[in-house]
Write a protein that binds this DNA or RNA. Structure first.
Lengths: 356, 356
DNA sequence: GTGAAAGCGCTAACAC
DNA sequence: GTGTTAGCGCTTTCAC
């Protein structure tokens, strides 16, 4: 076992008496230079195994682990990923956050979170996360159109991942839920169950998900040669209450429909409440379907499309990590969704099929 | 207007050609030393107004703002607040997160978020946020008992704020929702509405909120001389499904009760579904009450107790900020809740009263 | 395979 | 009121 040569670098500093141990402490106690200690912790390949062992042993004893702040200053990257969510959708995105954290943590990244909207200027939040805390990558989640609120040139230094909604001009990796496939699968399922007049309760037009789902509905209906009809389209805004109202109006209108496809589960809950209140039966009098796969859907036997928000977050994290490694354009991704058939959509039940 | 004297400090470094501007660039262009520039950005009082103006003007032109990483390394504090949430409760805490961010951002703090539970060891997440990224303060949210999973001595360097559940041994500032007051107000309200046999659907016993609310229920019933009776107590676990099941059992048991108090709204939703399915009417056949104040409660006309999670987060943030300023023991806080009376609880409706 | 030394961007103690 | 000068904890050439 080679003995390290003398080095005086480590004596440059006084013993760190209090405070957390630094690389110098490890250097002094092992007799190796700080450079070598640094190499060990950076998994630099050309350090001998014995050196590696010795350094690790002493570090463990001292409770040393390299300070990310020191590393950031010297190395140029912070290993911080900035994440921005719209304030309004916080509940919806919580799962995504968890998925994000899960894969980021694995690679030793940490997640700086901030919310925009609700009075807080996007641009300044953006600044806080980029020029402010120098995130290596920014993940920007949105449902509403950010329009010209964001001046991307100013952020261009920080690579970006867009979550759940693309932004036209911004060249950034985009991770989306596969709304179209989900809607299409649902309409097909309803049709297979014998429903022809499939009504829809729409979502807020300025929302990406609502736009996509509505478009998907129209397209699927067309493809299946099912009637598209203004009396089949009822306005909602993704809130439970709006679903309830829309359903009431639909029932009152005396228009005929076999099924009502609510463009999210929340509205489906409202619709179900309205149906019960009116004394109708599901699925005998009307079939109901939702979208999102919230937990309440299960116990209400609501047929829906499960959107794996956790995976969405995970995919974004993976893309972000590639970006830190210098990959210029990680592939855009469409996160697959899953049709979940339950009692609410008709007589044939009990199978759960994957969406192609 | 005084001219700055010559200083050579600023010529110590070459012009930063690419990359973001540093304090040296501002120093060179203004003629002031980096120390002075630093003072301007730290709001050090004894810099002349003209100097301040000049520095700010040049900084603005350059797009300079001090690097938090440099600051952290030199100054010892990162202005980062670490926030830990249990994975399971992510949806529930999303609002708290937003409240946290709101007040932290105001003071220039940033929020490092991480989730524990669901397979991820608390201790290592803790380490990631403290020895890892050196948060100035740690905010630890929990509902379940962390028991001996957490070794606080190892973290003691980082001051801590406990959110939503106290931990006995840990000496830390604790911010809680005032469950007791909320439950008490609810039971009183139900009693005033003429209900005497008030059943309850409980929550998971290992949860702080469930424990507190149950205890509050028993205490309030006792104080009001209302019957406490094993046949009035039904097990739930805070999920919609459990509320539904419990309600079904309660209805099937043919026990008499005037009202059912669900210890959270989610279960109340399930209970309401069960009641509708059975063809009963609310509040005619049975009154229903919940707790939490989720949005669905409004449109289902559910009487509930609103828990301002945003405020909870805000209060935690305020405490955390005090802690960074060296305040040893910011006051513990009980966040006030609000009884919201709606149709589900009986005939008298339409007033919203504050809980004392 | 390892060491010396020069920074990374900033703050703080001490001068004046 | 402002400048000088050490660092803060680490990485990274360039030597050897």
């Amino acid at each position: 076992m080679k003995r390290p040569r003398d080095n005086k670098n480590n004596s440059r500093r006084p013993n760190t008496s209090g405070g957390r141990p630094t690389i110098y402490d490890v250097s002094r106690l092992t007799g190796f230079s700080t450079a070598t200690v640094s190499r060990v912790f950076s998994n630099y390949p050309r350090v001998s195994q014995s050196t590696r062992n010795r350094v690790m042993a002493v570090s463990r004893k001292l409770g040393f682990s390299p300070s990310p702040v020191g590393r950031a200053l010297a190395g140029g990257n912070t290993r911080i990923i900035g994440v921005m969510f719209p304030l309004i959708a916080s509940g919806f995105f919580a799962e995504a956050l968890a998925g994000l954290d899960e894969v980021l943590a694995e690679d030793g990244f940490t997640m700086l979170t901030a919310f925009y909207g609700g009075g807080r200027d996007i641009q300044s939040v953006l600044a806080r996360l980029t020029t402010g805390y120098q995130s290596d990558v920014l993940i920007l989640a949105s449902t509403y159109d950010l329009g010209d609120q964001v001046q991307f040139p100013s952020v261009l230094r920080t690579p970006m991942v867009l979550l759940d909604r693309p932004i036209p001009r911004a060249e950034a990796c985009t991770i989306l839920i596969d709304n179209m496939a989900g809607v299409s699968a649902m309409v097909r399922h309803l049709a297979e169950n014998g429903h022809r007049r499939i009504a829809v309760i729409s979502g807020p037009d300025n929302t990406w998900d609502a736009q996509q789902r509505m478009q998907g509905y129209l397209q699927a209906m067309k493809e299946l040669n099912l009637p598209i009809d203004p009396t089949l389209i009822w306005r909602g805004d993704f809130t439970l209450e709006s679903g309830r109202q829309a359903m009431r109006k639909a029932m009152a209108a005396q228009q005929s429909f076999d099924a009502v496809f609510c463009l999210n589960d929340e509205m489906a809950l409202g619709a179900i409440a309205a149906i019960y209140e009116a004394g109708w039966r599901i699925p005998d009098d009307v079939a109901i379907a939702g979208f999102d796969g919230i937990s309440a859907a299960e116990s209400l036997q609501l047929t829906t499309v499960a959107c794996p928000m956790r995976d969405l977050g995970g995919a974004a994290a993976t893309a972000a990590i590639s970006l830190t490694r210098g990959v210029a354009h990680p592939p855009d991704q469409l996160i697959p969704v899953r049709l979940i058939v339950r009692r609410s959509s008709g007589r044939k039940i009990a199978h759960e099929a994957g969406v192609p």
